[in-house]
Design a protein around this nucleic acid. Structure first.
Lengths: 282, 282
DNA sequence: AGCAGCGATACCGTCAAGGTATCGATCCCG
DNA sequence: CGGGATCGATACCTTGACGGTATCGCTGCT
């Protein structure tokens, strides 16, 4: 199978409409119809059920859709990583590390410091991004290595090494009654009147429905909490970033957060290997 | 990038010889040279350093080689999984599970029993294979789900769920002096005169060098041990498969073995999801 | 110097990918 | 119930990308 065929199929499977898919691909509809027919013939499987009015995916079709996306992502990542490797040789940044803005800053500083001291260390460019975005950057080959946070980010498809495990705290406006408690439970928090949990954007940029205020980044989050509009649950290492207008209380039954360093499983690069070796010793 | 180009590049990168690579691809050498040139032009990167006598990989080239193998594997797996999905609809086996022959048999039986009792369960075909082969079957899309054993198998690129953790025992011929001990350490075993650890074949079928006898499967392994030609370290669950001619002693400092159920991260199938849900509750 | 081996280049033929025109079926609406 | 609109499939044509053959130019080894 050629990637061209996979791209065609993904377009049709997503649009469920040959005409629209053809427009999206910048081609005419007939050759697209033929390409899909040929793909079906070669696979010996019906991928789409078509009447002259509607197009639907068969079971095999929806398998191929999921697999095609993964395969095309792998091909695109191959291209980007090769381009980056070529740039690196001519003096670009040696390594791109993606990390969530505002998270694990102490850990990150220590890691970068130790790596920089390594003989033969290359310059590391740090991309600080929104929550969950590190995963995408790494998958797309735009970053060489990333700090992820389980159980929030999926590490599926990566090699990983655990760096630290923390319990979580609830961050509240200073002076809130709960801040007098030595610890709380999740049930205490969900029941808080007037302090809902904020909503983060999904990968596609939309916000899930709910009562909480919409936030995009860490600063905005903490400010919203300080204003008494929300509370939030964060790993305990956030505590040394809190001003006096915020207070943190341990949450006993919140899931523990594990920070892991992750990299694509086929990394050949010496620099990535060095960085990981150092991270594993932290 | 088209998969054709990637296949061409992999052939040349592996052979480091345009003529041989062309023969392997069943084509003439000139179009292959041109295809690689075009790939390099489009990527804006030199992939190969060629003199008229030798061909070597550049840094970017070796990145692309690793990435191409991964991407081509993803494309091949997509094709196989789609074919399988189509067969399943027409009454083939619903699910193929790969497990190492002789390992986790109790766990496996329990899992299959529970799943078969599930409403809407599809027939499960179990492929019992040699050590480390489950991983390959799963990667290539020849199996839908597999039981892997950490730290021996790499789970990189899969979603996994831990099923059980066991410590390991050393298996010895009955009557061996060490069998009188309540437990041993690794150092005790490596020092055993005349009882080396056997050698397993690598994925390419060759055996690593060393003193131990060559074995291919579990039966052969246990028989070799019973004959007093080797000893071996296995998870403790193997104990109820041992005859009287073999004895097992716990090894205190051997790494613990974790059995995990693994599946490709893009699995859309209801059957896989059911099986995993059941496995997680074991 | 001459030969052998290798990758690159020049040139040519073919076929598959893509375009246009149109068909046949289905649904919607009056 | 009939006509128009919409959609995927088919028929037919054009073109350029891909592959083949012949040959060149360079290099290393006798």
């Amino acid at each position: 199978m050629e990637t061209r065929e996979l791209r065609y199929f993904v377009a049709v499977a997503e649009e469920l409409h040959f005409g629209r898919a053809a427009r999206r691909l910048g081609m005419a509809q007939p050759p697209l119809s033929r390409a899909i027919q040929q793909l079906e013939r070669r696979l010996g499987a019906a991928l789409l059920d078509r009447t002259s009015r509607t197009v639907t995916l068969t079971e095999a079709g929806s398998v191929l859709l999921a697999e095609s996306r993964a395969a095309l992502a792998a091909v695109d990542a191959a291209e980007r990583r090769t381009r980056r490797a070529a740039l690196t040789a001519t003096g670009g940044p040696g390594l791109i590390l993606a990390a969530k803005a505002g998270a694990s800053s102490e850990l990150l500083a220590k890691l970068l410091g130790l790596y920089a001291a390594e003989p033969g260390a290359t310059p590391v460019e740090v991309t600080l991004c929104g929550p969950g975005e590190q995963e995408r950057l790494l998958r797309e080959g735009r970053a060489d290595v990333a700090l992820l946070h389980r159980p929030f980010d999926s590490t599926a498809g990566f090699d990983t090494e655990e760096l630290s495990t923390e319990s979580q705290v609830v961050v509240l406006p200073a002076g809130h009654p709960l801040t007098l408690r030595a610890h709380v439970h999740l049930a205490d928090i969900t029941a808080l009147p007037g302090l809902p949990l904020p909503r983060w954007p999904a990968p596609d940029g939309t916000y899930p429905p709910g009562p909480g205020p919409q936030v995009r980044d860490h600063t905005q989050l903490l400010q919203t909490v300080a204003l008494g509009r929300a509370c939030t649950i964060l790993p305990e290492s956030c505590r040394n970033q809190l001003h006096d207008d915020l207070a943190a209380v341990p949450v006993l039954d919140a899931p523990t957060v594990t920070t892991v360093i992750a990299w694509p499983p086929h990394s050949r690069s010496r620099a990535v290997a060095d960085l990981i070796r150092i991270a594993a010793r932290l």
